[in-house]
Amino acid sequence: MIAATRTFLVPFMRRPVAAAGLGILVLMIVTAILAPVLAPYDPSKIDPISRLLPPNAAHWFGTDQFGRDILSRVIYGARLALLIGVGVVSFALITGVPAGVLSALFPRFGRVMMRLIDVLMSFPALLLALGLIVILGRGVSNAILAIGVVYLTTTSRITYGLTLRLRTETYVEAANSMGAGAFWTIRKHVLPNLVSPLLVQASFVFAFAQLSAASLDFLGLGAPPEIPSWGNMLAEGRIFITRAPWLLFFPGFAIAITAFSLNLVGDALRDRLDPRFRDMLRK
């Protein structure tokens, strides 16, 4: 755990850009948690009198076509963004890591599993998510599931490759020569060595999950319209793009900066990694 924490923090100390990325990320998490305190208005409160106001002293980010405060909606949107990110990353790791590790250690299982992953990977990411939503139905948890499946493929692929390489390490052979079984090898030799590369992978999945979720919302297939999500705000505001560009600017900016800062964090972690694994993650 200490090693993991160190792996996580060291790369940020000397790199101001990466540190900024981490800072924005922390800000987003705090915003999401403290949303009820920070938001000046109820994000769903309709106020027909103050419709489509540009940014002003009362409404810093302006208001939308129903007179709802955009700042409050962006702040609440961070909650959903965080939920989607954590949900997708968890799903991808919980399913992808075992799939990858077991495929690498049991070649016969691996042949079937990896062909399955190949099939899933042959779909464009968004198309795959869309298809799954059509089957599963609209909703936040289904969106997480659909995007999760997309990133389960890359996560299991990376885990598979890393495990294949670890399996040929001399210390794993040494353990085999002492009679170590598969689960001993996984627990003592494979998983501890996967922690840092997977941390990197998690930060990228988190970033791409934001973009995918926003796309689903935008297409009206993600979170239900009553939930203030950044993607929904874009979808609803798009017809006002010329009259009231702030409707799109602020949620769009929130999506972009979140994804960007996560990518910075991921890059910093990756550069810090063992060079042997660095090449594999760079695609």
Binding site: E169, T170, A174, M178, A180, G181, K188, P192, N193
Partner: peptide, 23 residues
């Protein structure tokens, strides 16, 4: 290879005790 035959993330003590732990 004395560099590759020890797991970099395990302490020397854990590596030496590994057989005993397995069995």
């Amino acid at each position: 290879d004395p560099f590759a035959s020890l797991n970099p993330r395990r302490s020397i003590g854990d590596s030496i005790a590994e057989t005993g732990d397995i069995h």
